[in-house]
Design a protein around this nucleic acid. Structure first.
Lengths: 135, 135
DNA sequence: CCGTATCCCTAGAGATACTG
DNA sequence: CAGTATCTCTAGGGATACGG
């Protein structure tokens, strides 16, 4: 694909890219408040791999506390990103999975993760360089 | 579909989807901590449209405080996402612009914003429906 | 004009303990 | 097993005032 130059991107941006127009900002904020918290992205990524039960997810999601997993899942469920299925067995079994909407978010999140991965090293260097400039 | 166990799915996924593998999580977190704060995305979006001076940016970025704009710009500069150019005039003039790295982030951010835009309505509905389920 | 320095206050998140 | 209920602590962020 022909790479657009920075200039082109810049000029186009204002009119062509709906995502950054001013009216959309509260939306962007509200999405970032959901996925920008400490655990949502990790949980979404994890659920992108399979359906999991609560404690299974807890173990896989490194040092998340029971409370925060619970809170995070509630939030994701509230936004229709994750489905919660209770099997009326004993002991109780509850399965969490991404909904269709959740999977569409997963795509974006993976892009973000990919960007982070691709730029992590140079960002790290920038940080140490910046921090070393004085102090 | 042969029924893959959760374990198998998990193992496959780890190798197949680079963006969500476990080692990348701290990176993802560190990126989300940068762009997940209250103002970074808005500022990056705004700078995606043009270069701006401090107070110009302040006016365009709705009700951001002087302090928070300053803090946000420092953070973005530290990560090499924004460049700061001081013109030694009087009164002083300082220009902020996205760096190349910043523009590459802009692409991802716009996707995110696009996703938010596309799903905002249905998410809003999910929320009211969820909140109405009891209480 | 372009910021930094303070004070303060609330939301996010950990630790811990308890229930269906 | 799958959660909820408190309690506490701190970091993010607003308001305000001052400095280069």
């Amino acid at each position: 694909m022909a790479a657009a130059t920075a200039e082109e991107l810049r000029t186009e941006a204002a009119s062509d890219t709906p995502g950054c127009r001013e009216e959309a900002r509260p939306l962007i904020r509200s999405v970032l408040e959901r996925i920008g918290d400490k655990w949502s992205v990790v949980v979404v990524c994890q659920l992108g791999e399979s359906t999991y039960r609560f404690n299974e997810l807890r173990r896989l999601t490194s040092p998340i506390t029971q409370r925060m997993l619970s809170v995070t899942l509630r939030g994701l469920e509230r936004d229709g990103l994750v489905s919660r299925t209770v099997h009326p067995t004993v002991p109780p079994q509850v399965d969490y999975a991404l909904t269709k909407r959740g999977r569409s978010l997963l795509g974006v999140v993976r892009d973000l993760a990919g960007w982070a991965d691709a730029h992590a090293q140079e960002i790290g260097e920038s940080r140490t360089e910046y921090d070393g400039r004085e102090e």
